[in-house]
Simulated assay, not measured.
Amino acid sequence: MPNDDAHKPPPAADDIAPKSAPLRWLWKFNHGLDIVKGLSLVTVLSSLVVGYFQYLNAYQEKVGSQAKEDMAAATATFTEISRAFSEVQALQQTLYSDFTRAVRDRSDESDQALLTKNARAISERYEKARIALRENIDVLTRKAEIYIDWASNTYRDPAEKHNVDADPLSRQVLRDYAFDCSDKYNFPAFGNVHVEDDDTPAKDVADDAYCAIAEKRGVDDKTQPKDAFIRICAGPHTHSRIAKRIYWYSAKHHVLTMHYCFEAAHNKLAAARQWASRSDRDAAKEREIVERENEINAQLDDLAGRVSAFSSLALHQMERIRVKYRPVGFLCSVPLVRNIPSLNCFPIRTASLTH
């Protein structure tokens, strides 16, 4: 009948689309534009705003999660390292103190003397703690680097190119360069944040020329934190002319120097350790370390000071982690403006920048 066509449903979109692939793609693109044209400007803008703030919310949740993880890892690392060094250093100092007092009181030959009993009880704990520290020192060093140094570095981007061996300091370097733990020049110092660029001399001597100069430069109250490092020169068993740097704002470098100085003190106390463990005694060496009591006590006190300096640095760097992830201001919610580098709106990267 003539009116039958009026009751037929309209042809489907796929039925009227061109069959040729290029023309079909062009038709779909044009069909999409027709749909967008049907939307009001307010609807389009509202969708964009909602999507933008959903992205910001997801990003801030990721930042908050990363902040919790970094703080938890830094806290655990600080606790583990501080506890290991504090325990073994305290046992070392107590053992030596009991030994010198027992010799002075002439009770070192008596198994029933209180000092002797205390020293022998400490000896076993000390040796076990020292072995455990030696077994874990390389792992502790890397943990300090990853979870304290890297995590607190606001300007470090993991996506940038980094040499695997960018930091050459190691236990072997400290040994080959004969690091002197007793030299006050080699004691941790962090500089002065109030010093201006014009108030401090620049450390412009190259590392390969530093060891040839007469004046060795340390860290004092006129040193800026960025220059809080020392340089050590090669020892008698190596022919290297290039000085190595120890940065006091590096938790890794603190752990390395603390362990090196602990082992140096450990070796000096061999005679006291032999007495406390009921091993064969060496009377000559015992007299020597008793006569050097003031010197050895000062060395042990310095080692305790190094542990304290590490703790101060770790807490300082943990505060920097808080600053790194602190809540951003309103400008960081404004499109395009938040991309300005000086605003530091992006504490973590979500994509690789360099390949």
Rank of each mutant, 00 (worst) to 15 (best):
S277M: 14
R338L: 03
P327W: 03
A272M: 00
R326H: 06
Q317G: 00
S352D: 15
P335F: 02
L353G: 14
E288P: 00
E286M: 01
V328E: 06
R338C: 05
R326K: 11
L331I: 10
G329L: 01
V307I: 14
R273P: 08
I289D: 04
V323Y: 15
R349T: 11
L331W: 11
I289E: 03
M318V: 10
V334Y: 12
Q299L: 02
V334E: 14
R281Q: 12
E295R: 09
S342Y: 10
V337I: 15
R281D: 08
Q274T: 02
I340W: 03
D280F: 09
L300S: 00
E286H: 04
A271I: 00
N294F: 03
S311W: 00
F310H: 04
K324C: 01
L353M: 04
I296S: 03
L315I: 12
L303Y: 12
L313Y: 04
R322K: 13
P347G: 00
S312D: 14
M318F: 11
M318P: 11
Q274M: 05
N297L: 12
N297P: 06
A309H: 11
V307A: 13
L313K: 08
L315Y: 11
L313H: 01
R273Y: 09
D282Q: 01
R349W: 01
R320N: 08
V337Q: 06
R349F: 10
I321L: 09
R281N: 07
R349N: 13
A283Y: 08
S352Q: 15
A309D: 14
E295C: 12
V337G: 03
A298S: 15
A314K: 09
F330E: 11
S311M: 08
R292S: 04
E293V: 07
A276V: 05
I289Q: 04
